[in-house]
């Protein structure tokens, strides 16, 4: 067992764990942050997406050692000033969820996409989101939500 210092959603946490344990299991089992979901264990569906220094990362294949010392943001910490992030609001407005299990990963991926490209065209959204699987196949509404979130961002600016 090894001690790890993790900075998650702006707060420091000390975790004692198997060194080869994934960030996903640690978040879900030790820290009760269950917003990141297990979907495949091989980084192929991105239900487990968290932001690691701002980059969407599959937490299921990220060992704790790689997460240490980085700024980790989970879906629980994405909201701004106690309210919803524009991407979260847009997902609600556009009904961009059916079962919703993929949604935290989708939202974090979209938030990073919009930060890097505030005005993506549909092709940029499709290629930026293509790593995330929605088995309900709610893709059209999710694309609409990302477009709406971009518009919300512009309106705020």
């Amino acid at each position: 067992m090894t001690e790890f210092m993790l900075r998650i959603n702006g707060a420091d946490h000390t975790v004692t764990s198997d060194p080869d344990r994934s960030l996903l299991q640690t978040l879900r089992e030790d820290l009760d942050l269950t917003g990141a979901k297990y979907g495949c264990g091989e980084g192929a569906c991105r239900s487990c997406t968290v932001l690691l220094d701002g980059r969407p990362t599959a937490a299921c294949v990220t060992p704790l050692s790689r997460a240490e010392g980085r700024e980790i943001v989970t879906i629980e910490g994405l909201g701004e000033d106690g309210g919803l992030h524009p991407v979260q609001q847009a997902f609600i407005d556009e009904h961009a969820m059916q079962c919703g299990y993929c949604v935290p990963g989708m939202i974090l991926t979209a938030a990073a996409l919009l930060r890097d490209n505030p005005d993506p065209d549909p092709e940029a959204i499709v290629s930026g989101m293509n790593g995330n699987i929605c088995r309900c196949c709610n893709y059209p509404n999710i694309v609409r939500a990302v477009e709406r979130a971009a518009a919300l961002r512009h309106a705020e600016a």
Binding site: L33, T34, T74, L78, P104
Partner: peptide, 10 residues
């Protein structure tokens, strides 16, 4: 919907 987008839904 809000519980789903914030990760609060269990």
């Amino acid at each position: 919907a809000e519980a789903i987008v914030t990760g609060a839904h269990r």
